[in-house]
Amino acid sequence: MRMLIEETLAAGFLDEAAPTPDSIGLAAMDDGAALRLGDQWLVVTTDSHVIHPIFFPGGDIGRLAIAGTVNDLAVMGATRPLALTSAIIVEEGFRQSDLARLQASMRETCREAGVTIVTGDTKVMGRGEIDGIVINTTGLGLTDAVVPDAGLEPGDRLLVTGSIGDHGIALMAERHELDFEGELASDVAPINGLLAAALAAANGAVTAMKDPTRGGLASALHEMAEKSGVGITVHEPAIPVRPTVRSAAEMLGLDPLHIANEGKAVLGVKRERAEEALAAMREHPLGREAAIVGECVDENPGRVVLDTGLGRRLVSEPEGEPLPRIC
């Protein structure tokens, strides 16, 4: 996917001059763009949301569309979103009651994030021309300081805001009709409030942030390590994973590190402020399980090493859609 984007879709745009001095554009391949506006930054991000099934344990495509964009703004440092736009394309025959449910869910998620939709667009396509519904949201936010995903330095501690793997495993169980004992639910939620608390407590010491969505924590860490030119060591026993998610992933032969999250972030924080940032996150209702899971090192730049407690190995970048394995 990343290759398709870099080599085909973004080609030509990548080396065009930035619209404002020192702005972050397409070439950074970050979660969004940041444009200088006076002494502030305008952060812009856009995302088209498709998911199957559209209603799933813990959320729906409407909640995902709001939370996903709010979180993309937040991990760039824009934790107080200014406004969202929403463009919806539905398939002819899509149930109106479902649309109403999605609309209510979007409104509720906007309320949680403290933002509203200021403009939108709706299109209907013929039956079979689109699969159910696609929702695009664009987010705008202002911040005094942009947090890139490439700012890690050796010595920085890595924090996650909570348990990982919940979203992807819940979806997979639903899609493949797998029954697991215990609750499996997506973690989809706007976490801008949580990240605002962490940023305030760290007092300028947050060096990088990223939301580990598709590809999970493994992809996010790889991207951050590569772009920052540091090595990363992660301590597996310190990574919060719910027991049900752990056993479901083990049964399916999947690595929780590869599983998507929709309400989590990974933060790089300077060593001396890491505990403060952690404490602030744990105070927040969405950050109770936040943890320090690793650190940045000089060795092996661009690589992510996992200390399993028993030995050490590389963390791989997930390839393609994870498939359940045979035995």
Partner: peptide, 12 residues
Amino acid sequence: EQSIAKYGLRTI
């Protein structure tokens, strides 16, 4: 092999 690799056992 999964177990050996996944838990990093070859390093010990």
